[in-house]
Design a protein around this nucleic acid. Sequence first.
RNA 1: GGCUCCGUGGCCAAGUGGCUAAGGCAGCGGAUUGCAAAUCCGCCAUCACCGGUUCGAAUCCGGUCGGAGCCUCCA
Length: 511
Amino acid sequence: MIRVYNTLSKQKEDFQPLEEGKVGIYLCGPTVYDKSHIGHMVGPIIFDTIKRYLTYSGYEVTLVVNITDVDDKLIMKSRERGIPMDAIAEEMTDDYLSNLASLGVDQIDHMPKATESMGEIIQFTQDLIDKGFAYAVDGDVFFDVNADQDYGKLSNRTAAAAQGEGGEAASRKKSASDFALWKSAKDDEPSWDSPWGKGRPGWHIECSAMSRRILGESFEIHGGGLDLVFPHHENELAQSECCHGKPLVKYWMHNGLMRAGGASGKVGGRSDRQDDDSETQATVETKISRSKGAGGLADLIETHGGERIRFFLLRTHYRSTIVFSEEGLQEAGTALESFYRLFERYKRLTGNCFYDLTPAPLREDHSESNNDSEFVQQINAHRQSYLNHMDDDFNTGGATSDLFDLVRTINRFADQNDLEQSCSDEQQVALTAAVKTLRNLSAILGIFSAPSVDSAGSDELTGQLMELMIALRAEARANKNFEIADRIRDGLSELGITIEDRKDGTGWRVG
RNA sequence: GGCUCCGUGGCCAAGUGGCUAAGGCAGCGGAUUGCAAAUCCGCCAUCACCGGUUCGAAUCCGGUCGGAGCCUCCA
């Protein structure tokens, strides 16, 4: 039984879809007014993983991630740069999509855009007016918070305590906590025709309208960053539930936010964009680490590779705060090495490539057999532990530890049976079954789908040169001329190449 | 001020009532190796602090200290 932490009830609940076997997930995506930073990737990566796991568990899953391509920040950006809003939206959407691709996020089924959903948004707004939950004033439409008995249940606050001064539109609102469903446009702003005049949607209404179109009036999971609980999700919930008279979603899931190492405040958060008036030494240091974290995600992917970043994020439970640091990413990279070495070892022993193994699509029954060897039993135990971790609110941090256990168990099997000396057909079968388990389980996390491409110096000439160097060194070693042999190894080491003398021959790698 | 959440070994990080507190990185000892590298084996924590509940708590309750998020745009 899968269990899910629900922000609404503040506890873990048994996962039970509304309709047997089907799951709808709506994840709040970015407002595309600027390039994405690493913090924007936490949600997509965890929900991509959640969909993979639910699919593996037999559910038919629809994952929706919206793109907000009209809002105040986009309009400001458009003025700043002197180009149309839709050009900025397109540029930043492309940036977002390419980042997702680099990080192996490929499970998204729909990416609706606000500007392509105006009809539904206007209809939704009209529905709320008709039902008495919203009112139009001078071209604006506001949601009437006091008409909603349940308002505040997600973020645990009352309507009165909800929203401060009411902003610039305060004078037209019935109550300061009322929020805009439709905003009238000034002359030079992008706008769409509506029954209330030219204008654009408020921030929250697009999600209500688009989720209704694609997933229906009620669906299973709504996700987003913890910072969206209020006001975004609170308001979205209010709109949809007042409109439909039933729960919008069964499970509200919120991922923790990322912090820059040494700094306070989340990556890309408000403090990042504020002009600091107090230039103490501490804030200067903070800015440096910030610029690393919140700076170009594309650069980060360039230097570390998507797999390392994805693994780094998934090692922590999705509800925790992740502190971003260059060192943390480095360490994740070191940890991944043991997997890559096992894949190479597997290939040497069996001739098969890890990446060519096809991951099992479904979580099949592994009924315990008494005939199983100790090795097979250990592998199954690790597999079961992995599934238990994932069943428990998608505990990817715990699950990765089972992956390391699998690696150690497989290496131990190879060591103890001296497979480098001889590997029987039977042993090859056992080895492949175990490696395949690793393949299946890592595929759920979205890692190891293809060889990591960060290995430099893998061109043909280098390979031939290395073959020559290794042959020369082997000759020297055979003649017990260790001085020469070590000179070769040390020299290569200075060039960043590591030599490994294994029982079945000498290998080399960059790094 | 209101509302959430967190504090586990040198660092990262699972575990949230009961066998010897996962796993990773770093370190140390051993096997292996000509020496290394890789791999394997072993070692390294009583869970911020105080008090309470309980046969039994890192895990529940209260308090103290420390940290984070939201209450304003935000993944």
